[in-house]
Amino acid sequence: MYVIVAGGGKVGFGLSQALLANGDEVLCIEKDAHRCAVIAEDLGSASYQGDCCEVSVLEDTGTGRADVFVAVTGDDADNLIACQVAKARFRVPRTVARINDPRNREIFSILGVDATVNSTDVIMSQIAQEMPSQPLTQVLSLRGTGRELCQVEVTADSPLLGEEVNLLRLPGDSEIILIVCADQSVRTPENGLQLEAGQVVLALTREEQEPALREALTGVAPE
């Protein structure tokens, strides 16, 4: 895979190193000559000095054959325009932009950038993982099926408490497949089974249904 990383700051440099370690072909474009000399010490010919928004630079760097174009400068406008030029002029199949202002996410999406990453989101998701208030956790991703196995514990304040398992309204084709009881015994979701505190419910769902399932089983609405 050929990945172009536009912007050789801390984020772009680190990302380039990680991709190189992963065995990908990488080119990190950095505008500032001094900064570029610094990252070239480590990245060697995987670094390139130039303005990532200029058509001639993207031509020189072989953007036309890039699989992914990632713009991670500290300037949202630069990241947007670089991605748009890469996509419109060089037909790069996937463009990813770092956004520094989270409010720009929707704008970038409307203007054709395939994915955005912002540090606020990353930190928020890290915090969310540590929080006990969202107890739905993924146990297993079933490779190639787009499906995953999740679990949720029935707590004393859970909306599941006392509910009949087969009457729960679940999104799409998500289904509960197993209930692990407090005494470690295992039950299938037969009719009439009411959920009790201390039980763990295992559900099969699809990645895109996970937020809705989370809401159904925990009562916590997605952000």
Partner: peptide, 15 residues
């Protein structure tokens, strides 16, 4: 700034 101009113009047009 070219990129600022282009971004703002697109926001004005499309948003």
């Amino acid at each position: 700034g070219d990129n600022r101009n282009l971004m703002a113009a697109q926001v004005a047009k499309h948003i």
